[in-house]
Nucleic acid binder design. Sequence first.
DNA 1: ACCATCTTTTGATATATGTCAATTTTTATT
DNA 2: AATAAAAATTGACATATATCAAAAGATGGT
Lengths: 231, 231
Amino acid sequence: MTQNGDNCSCQECLRKTSIFEYLTDEELVAFNDSRYQTKYKAGEIIFKQGTAITHIMSFTSGLAKVYIEGYNNRDLILQIIKPGSLIGGPGVLVDNMHHFSVSAITDSTACFIDINEYKKSLNNNTEFAIASLKEINSQHIENFNKFISLTQKQMQGRIADAIIYLSDEIFNSNSYDMTISRQDLADLTAMSKESAIRILKEFKDDKIIQLNHNKIEILNVDKLRRFSEIG
Amino acid sequence: MTQNGDNCSCQECLRKTSIFEYLTDEELVAFNDSRYQTKYKAGEIIFKQGTAITHIMSFTSGLAKVYIEGYNNRDLILQIIKPGSLIGGPGVLVDNMHHFSVSAITDSTACFIDINEYKKSLNNNTEFAIASLKEINSQHIENFNKFISLTQKQMQGRIADAIIYLSDEIFNSNSYDMTISRQDLADLTAMSKESAIRILKEFKDDKIIQLNHNKIEILNVDKLRRFSEIG
DNA sequence: ACCATCTTTTGATATATGTCAATTTTTATT
DNA sequence: AATAAAAATTGACATATATCAAAAGATGGT
């Protein structure tokens, strides 16, 4: 968790975090001035649910998970994030509290921008506010899909959804290193880790996926999608 | 579904739909001019998932449900709405599609405001945009609670949550007419209606609630909250 | 390279929840 | 009021999923 000497500016980050496009040059400078970058080791917590929001976070390298800490020490992973993701959280204009935790899955770096600079831009820059609104709405739509996946599909469908999600949204390949643990996979699909493991094995036996060590390869996307659709 | 001659203006509705407070007088006039009111009979659909968003809806009388149409003809109710609720939906700035359906539970009326007027105000009135953002964030937080309730609590906890929700948020009394059907209660808690009925009976036998016909009275809030907390 | 620790895997078993079918109750219609 | 249609209830049973415990495999630090 040491500060990073790395001198990239917010302007250069534009390519990655799209809503920054809507900031004016002055705002970008202000963001850049207030900004600091921090390194995290795998497993370390970046945002902790229940604490005050002081900064928004632009994730710059590594892999992290955004999760709600629920009952009986069970977590529900909302999303896996990769470089380019901007994480504020729904508490921003409401109670200024984090309603989820974020922790590094692999060694990671993240930039932090003072929440007041962010709020200033929301207030002064309508385009930016609208872009934020749009972003949050997209998130909302994804949550709807997650609701259906988690409450109406059985385990095969949920694991299929998770495998497809990781393939399409995170690793952009149908062959990837799982990186996330079995427990994480379980927390992503709202089941016990033992069940997640069993379904994974079932898919392997059915030649839907190949799996050795942590390397997963999707062999039969159609069957996977059918599981996702049938529920 | 006939047009309504009722001549209340948007200004008068202010009391109910709070984010309208941030509109200027001119905007309110524009909203009022584009607006029309419609009556719905119980069971009729107000917004249909998968159709284009042309208006935002201000619910003015009755009771309605907002629900996602999922797999195998199963619905998931996101919220029950009462007069004063403003319903746009997460598709507004994204794909202009409804991602949920809304239907009247009892005979109801609703006002519709042209989506373009709404978008115009978002673009021209930062305070209004921020208020909308805040509203959506609050919704987001509620969805997080719903995620935990639906994925980590067992049936007793979920039914307890639903009973408390109806008591606190909708009927504002610990004794109310259920109004919603058993199927709706099941769709609100993501279980089969038979299971919902059984848990309701269990609560009745344990003297946690009183229940005759559709009149429900909470007898033991503490036990209900314990079920909600234990999961 | 070794030991301790943590993660993954597997099997046996318990349990929560869904499904199906039959019955009763309520609501709507003529 | 009589009938049909819809909703609620109940019981028996099937099954999806969790839990527990033990074993195997991987990982990290000294």
